[in-house]
């Protein structure tokens, strides 16, 4: 799997990167070219041809491409065994769509067509609102708390309008316990009444609850100093 960190400057260099990232998949290569053409930088990709490997694409998330990345999230309902993630660290915010299927070519084409259509469609859907919320959370968490965010949803969760979110500092990645999630209402209440957020935390919530969480986080960060906890409570 190749990871593109450099800015892709010209046709020749761009084609080489995408060709290498796409492995033996011509449809993945076309998808990566489409991403770049519509203003989304592909960071890495895998055609899923090696046994045990998922097919995936990792794209840079920024405020200009929230709508297109949002429609990518919608695809978890159409691509079997798929998962959509947003991850942030001190350098970047990335979106990843991964899936496990024998016919990845068909789905790379579906993703390509969906992304192309998203650029033409001017009206933003609900997934844009979700993306915007996750992006805002990632920005606050990165800039004000110097911590990372991981957001995930899949077909089952997305169908219920739900997601999983974890927030943690660099040295806390191994302390995020997915089997013991926190209660979103307790977190929101703590943010609201005590102006505190303990890290690391992981919670499962609806998209509406996620927006409330962002609202309280925003209020807390901008009105009082947040009480970060590096002890992993």
């Amino acid at each position: 799997m190749f990871r593109v960190k450099a800015i892709l400057k010209d046709e020749k260099q761009r084609a080489r990167y995408f060709h290498e990232m796409a492995g033996d998949s011509r449809t993945l290569e076309l998808l990566l070219n489409t991403c770049y053409r519509i203003g989304i930088t592909p960071l890495s990709a895998n055609d899923g041809s090696k046994e045990g490997m998922l097919s995936n694409i990792v794209l840079e998330l920024n405020k200009k491409n929230l709508n297109s990345i949002g429609v990518l999230m919608d695809l978890v309902e159409e691509i079997p065994n798929s998962e959509f993630n947003i991850k942030s660290n001190s350098d970047e915010i990335t979106a990843e769509l991964s899936f496990s299927t024998k016919d990845s070519e068909q789905f790379f084409t579906l993703i390509k067509d969906t992304l192309e259509a998203s650029v033409i469609e001017k009206n933003h859907g609900y997934s844009y609102t979700v993306m915007s919320t996750v992006y805002n959370i990632a920005k606050i968490v990165k800039e004000a708390l110097e911590a990372n965010v991981s957001f995930a949803t899949n077909e089952k969760l997305y169908d219920l309008g739900k997601c999983g979110v974890s927030l943690y500092k660099d040295n806390q990645a191994d302390k995020v316990d997915t089997k013991n999630p926190d209660d979103i209402y307790e977190i929101i209440e703590k943010l609201k009444t005590k102006f505190a957020l303990h890290l690391p935390t992981i919670f499962f919530c609806s998209f509406e609850e996620l927006r409330t969480f962002y609202f309280e986080l925003d209020e807390t960060v901008y009105s009082k100093d947040i009480d970060g906890d590096n002890n992993g409570q």
Binding site: K122, N123, H124, E208, R211, T212, F215, E219
Partner: peptide
């Protein structure tokens, strides 16, 4: 005040061009 602001954030009116 907080609940009015939150309600308008959660369900903004006249959003969409």
């Amino acid at each position: 005040k907080r609940s009015i602001i939150l309600e308008h954030y959660q369900h903004p009116h006249h959003r969409g061009l």
